[in-house]
Design a protein around this nucleic acid. Structure first.
Lengths: 212, 212
DNA sequence: TACATAATAGAACGACCGTTCTATTATTGG
DNA sequence: CCAATAATAGAACGGTCGTTCTATTATGTA
């Protein structure tokens, strides 16, 4: 039942199927939203029967949560973990922003499933919303940590409000996604980068030691 | 049939009912999202029969569009038009931001129906999306106009990118809404104001250095 | 007041929803 | 290789969806 962390030694048949289902589910949630993530359509898309697919999850709610978890897992793998190779401080913070902007394209998704979930569950109480809040909270905390490191490195002014920075950075990224999907704005990424640079500039310590 | 602009002299019965339906629809879309805006539930909530309610709109899509139009109409009435009383320039731009942040509470809604629509239709082609894009485009254009006026008034630097400003301002407001509904953050409004002040400061003609 | 018309109700439709049950097939460990 | 078990299929369920049809009631007008 708990295929949350699959050991790399024995991928059983059921786990493989489940992974394939979740892949289709993440892709579908990103493209059409979580509301369109129905069991019938998902079964058709994966070549399974409704009941066969259903058996992998006890309920639709569990399927939605599993999809959300999988999306988060991919974000961490593709976007977050690589930033840890960047040196602590502004470099890593910038990597965090850039990877966040680009992880969708790197994952070959049409849109961000988490942004879709944000929209559909932010107001509806339930287990899905709870899981979502937790994921978002964790992402927010990671930004705050990165900002704090930048402050500690002397690159940001000591009085910089890390939570405020995270708030604004989240907004920039979210708006970038919206601008891309709604207005199909090809400049969205660049606009987001300008906004981020403006945000960073306002927090810089007076004597930045970037040099090279 | 076209009750789009009701003259103030003869509100016929059908128009009254339609207005009552749209009021419930807007309220419901804000609270539970457009996906939850089903004809059955809406009929129950307005005390009408499904078919009786349905007759006011030719299809569900038309109902959704009418709901979107009504929400936009209210935004204009409650938030946008009042800003025209503020003097052109920074004062009016600030009024635009502040009214945008507060119009929900002033309309006694639980959340912003347009933000909900943004989330659910930004990726799904159709007439609803088209209407939504048009509304959002118009709001964006109004921000750009207000920024341009601020530039013309000499309060913003001449090289200020008005479209970039609108992009960032939209992001700040949207994030404020998200932060309120998802994290239930009581500081969201203040954070949005701080972000907006930072954005304004970076465009100021005399360019005062930002502290926070 | 009578009548044309607008407004609404009620029942029914096919489609799809999530879910459950039972039966069948595939996988795997001893 | 064979039994135990996991994985999947198929059919059926009650419910709700949007929509259509027909009938009935309310409204506005001449």
């Amino acid at each position: 039942m708990n295929a949350a962390i699959s050991t790399n030694i024995k991928p059983t048949k059921g786990e493989e199927t489940r992974a394939a289902i979740l892949d289709a589910a993440v892709r579908m949630a990103a493209t059409d939203g979580f509301a369109a993530l129905t069991i019938g359509v998902l079964a058709e898309k994966t070549g399974l029967s409704k009941s066969g697919l259903f058996a992998h999850f006890g309920s639709k709610e569990d399927l939605q949560i599993a999809t959300l978890d999988e999306a988060t897992r991919r974000y961490n793998e593709v976007a977050f973990v690589p930033t840890l190779r960047a040196p602590r401080g502004l470099k890593r913070l910038e990597a965090l922003a850039e990877n966040w902007l680009l992880w969708i394209e790197r994952s070959e998704l049409k849109a961000c499933p988490m942004m879709a979930a944000l929209a559909e569950f932010d107001d509806q109480p339930g287990a899905v919303r709870d899981a979502l809040v937790q994921h978002m909270q964790r992402m927010n905390d990671e930004i705050i940590r990165a900002v704090q490191m930048t402050i500690d490195a002397g690159e940001f002014m000591p009085q910089t409000d890390a939570a405020q920075f995270a708030f604004e950075m989240f907004g920039i990224v979210a708006t970038c996604y919206r601008s891309r999907s709604l207005f199909l704005d090809p400049q969205a990424n660049d606009r987001a980068r300008v906004a981020f640079r403006r945000l960073v500039a306002s927090c810089r310590a007076s004597a930045p030691r970037t040099g090279t």
